[in-house]
Amino acid sequence: MSEKSRDINFLKLFGKNLRSIRESKEMSQEEFSSFCDIDTRQLGRIERGESNSTILTVKKIADKLNLPIKELFEI
């Protein structure tokens, strides 16, 4: 498996984990993106593994959820 393929798989797993966390909060993408103060389209791209989020975006999400950042990566 190439490095690019591993990176894509990692982004998809991160997005799947984030979606699972959002769904456990029983929030729609619109509600969650508003709660986390990020664009709904960006959240959709993150959840689909199409966007390589910045560290600051990940920190913002973790802060809003009151979770340690590492929990967002526990896939």
Rank of each mutant, 00 (worst) to 15 (best):
R48I: 06
D39Y: 10
I46K: 00
S51Q: 04
G49I: 15
S51K: 05
A62T: 02
L43H: 01
A62R: 02
N9M: 10
K64R: 12
K64C: 05
I55F: 07
E74H: 07
L72F: 00
E31A: 13
P68N: 06
K59E: 08
E74M: 04
I8P: 01
L56A: 12
F10E: 04
S28T: 15
R45D: 06
S28L: 06
I38H: 05
T57F: 02
T54Y: 08
I38P: 05
I69D: 00
I61F: 02
P68F: 00
S5G: 07
K25A: 02
I38T: 07
E30Y: 11
A62D: 00
T54K: 12
I75K: 11
F32L: 12
R41G: 05
L18C: 03
E74I: 03
E26K: 09
D63I: 15
C36R: 07
E26R: 11
F10W: 10
S51P: 01
E26N: 13
M1E: 13
E71C: 04
K60E: 08
D7T: 11
Q29L: 06
S33K: 10
S2W: 06
G49C: 13
I46N: 04
E31I: 09
G44D: 00
K60Q: 15
V58T: 05
S34C: 09
I69Q: 00
K25Y: 08
Q29M: 03
E23L: 15
D7C: 09
I8K: 07
E71L: 03
I21V: 03
N66S: 01
E23G: 04
K25H: 08
E23R: 09
E23Y: 05
K64W: 03
D37T: 09
I61T: 04
E50G: 12
K64V: 03
S20D: 10
S28R: 04
R41T: 05
S34Q: 10
E71G: 00
K70M: 00
L67P: 07
L13A: 10
L56Y: 11
S51C: 03
I38N: 04
E47R: 04
K70P: 02
I61V: 09
R6L: 14
E47F: 04
L13C: 13
F10I: 13
K16R: 10
C36F: 05
K59C: 13
E50S: 11
N9D: 14
